[in-house]
């Protein structure tokens, strides 16, 4: 299968996912991105993130984004894995990997997928601190990231 989309609570193995991307003779380039739970958020120390999503719609949106990238850059394989649930500091959140014949298409295709995922995929993130928690607000800078793909 050339596009693999998964939304899951379980962790993922980057090595396995990378192997599934390299399983073809056509492509000479693989680019992957992994997003992690980081500590710093506007002065407080994050101890975990909690992610929820809209089951069904999320997978459809991710597939649509992947299909757009596949056509635009003639990508070979695409893997998108996004975790949901309670994710402590340092845990992996998201993996995006693409293969293509040449590197530029792979770099751009992966970035396109992440930019659209952040803007369109139906996930919501809550930051947990030692004694409190707060929902993450949408960032305008994420919206502006789409401008470069609109030409």
């Amino acid at each position: 299968m050339s596009i693999l989309i998964k939304v899951q609570s379980e962790d993922f193995d980057q090595g396995d996912l990378h192997k599934s991307l390299s399983d073809n003779k056509r492509d000479g380039a693989i680019v992957t991105f992994t997003g992690l739970v980081r500590e710093f958020s506007a002065g407080d120390n994050v101890i975990a993130l909690e992610l929820e999503h809209y089951p069904g719609m999320t997978q459809q949106l991710l597939l649509k984004i992947a299909e757009q990238a596949k056509v635009r850059w003639s990508l070979g394989k695409i893997v998108i894995v996004h975790r949901v649930g309670y994710l402590p500091l340092g845990e992996q959140i998201v993996f995006v990997g693409v293969s293509s014949q040449h590197r530029l298409a792979a770099f751009e295709g992966a970035q396109f997928i992440m930019d659209y995922l952040k803007n369109q995929a139906t996930f919501w993130k809550k930051e947990h601190f030692e004694h409190s928690s707060k929902w993450v607000e949408f960032k305008q800078s994420d919206k502006h990231a789409l401008d470069k793909w609109k030409s």
Partner: peptide, 10 residues
């Protein structure tokens, strides 16, 4: 019909 705040995944 689903209603929700702007998305914040990734």
């Amino acid at each position: 019909l689903a209603l929700f705040p702007p998305v914040t995944g990734g």
